[in-house]
Design a protein around this nucleic acid. Structure first.
Lengths: 206, 206
DNA sequence: AATAATAGCGGACAATTGTCCGTTTGTCAA
DNA sequence: TTGACAAACGGACAATTGTCCGCTATTATT
């Protein structure tokens, strides 16, 4: 039988991504519309929507490179700190995540919008929570928390649950509010979060 | 001079709210459009948008009664537990908030959408964080946390900051994901959150 | 090369959100 | 009462999001 695949499909995907990246950096993620991206890239609406059903999906794709870098950083740090106490490793990971959230705030907020609204809430899939970035962060935090608890250094809790809560606490709009309204710097926020979410779990804190 | 106020303005406001409430309960918050509400109520688009710029604002108004009840419950509990340890009072407040979030999930999610997206992010106002409900919850948590810390029962932290983080951790979509994906009941979630966010702050935990 | 078949492109179209402006309507002064 | 004034109503209009379907272009087959 015939199963033809267009050879130019991949090129269009890259054209769309590149156009979106350019427009986002020039005008800001919020103000650029899907229609505008398609128009500028010179492709039909459907051509884009078939790839990215919402702006959030597009952003998730765009952030993928940056996220790969974050992942490499975290993995590197963990390897380098392999012999360090779990607490230290947890703090290192946390710091990286917060820096990343701060740097990629605009894309992350757009992704969050898609998560919160839309029929995602009805889908079984739950795009965001099943995305590779989320799963990686959750998995990494969970295993560190589990190691800390299993080695008896902390109080008792459910590592997977706690990891979800910690990630929720790092929602971009909350961090932005803390920095806009209260003037906290990124370092302030990191320190405060460690004092509030991580250290208290450890017996050795006092 | 003349400063006339239409006497029917208030009636229209109530008509809009009532219509919205009816449509929401009948069809669900997500599927009902602003246009549909205006059409059903028999008022112009602008008449509604002049009062509620987004669906989230409307939901914030609709939830106000329920929130008044929550507030009364919390205030009542705190009065009743006036002599109880701070830890116990914190847990009681937390429990109420989570139950409320669970019961009013659909309205709260709609409110969150408006918060996360939209030009709210550019506004100085930041509607949501300045809303009476948020300020009340944040204030109540902050004062309890401050009391706990000042009385030397807990580790050291910034009460106001921590209160923000705690509320962020209770985001409706996160709680929904925990219950949908992992099957946690409301009581499970309450217990876990207490073990993760509250008890560890206290010296006396162990 | 010519042909058949289909993956998938593109623009028109529908639905929703948000804005603007001509007109109505209630209030106050005479 | 009547007239003037402005608060505020309502629907038309613009912008954005999301869908549908006719048509093109690509590839396997002969």
């Amino acid at each position: 039988m015939v199963t033809p695949k267009r050879k130019d499909a991949q090129q269009l995907t890259e054209l769309i991504l590149e156009t979106a990246r350019d427009l986002f950096t020039q005008y800001g993620v919020d103000t650029v519309s899907m229609h505008q991206i398609a128009k500028t890239a010179g492709v039909g609406q459907a051509t884009m929507y078939r790839r990215y059903a919402q702006k959030g999906d597009l952003c998730l794709e765009l952030i993928d490179d940056q996220f790969g870098r974050l992942r490499a950083e975290i993995d590197g740090q963990l390897e380098q700190l392999a012999d360090a106490p779990v607490l230290e490793r947890l703090i290192a990971v946390f710091r990286r995540i917060i820096m990343f959230t701060h740097n990629e705030a605009s894309l992350l907020k757009a992704i969050h919008v898609s998560l919160v609204q839309s029929r995602c809430l009805n889908d079984d899939a739950q795009q965001f929570f099943c995305s590779q970035p989320y799963l990686y962060l959750h998995g990494t935090l969970t295993s560190l928390l589990k190691e800390a608890m299993d080695s008896g250094q902390t109080v008792s809790f459910d590592p997977a649950f706690t990891a979800h809560i910690m990630i929720a606490a790092l929602a971009p709009h909350t961090l932005q509010h803390l920095s806009d309204r209260y003037g906290y710097t990124t370092d302030d926020i990191i320190d405060q979060l460690i004092c509030t979410l991580i250290r208290p779990l450890f017996h050795s804190f006092e």
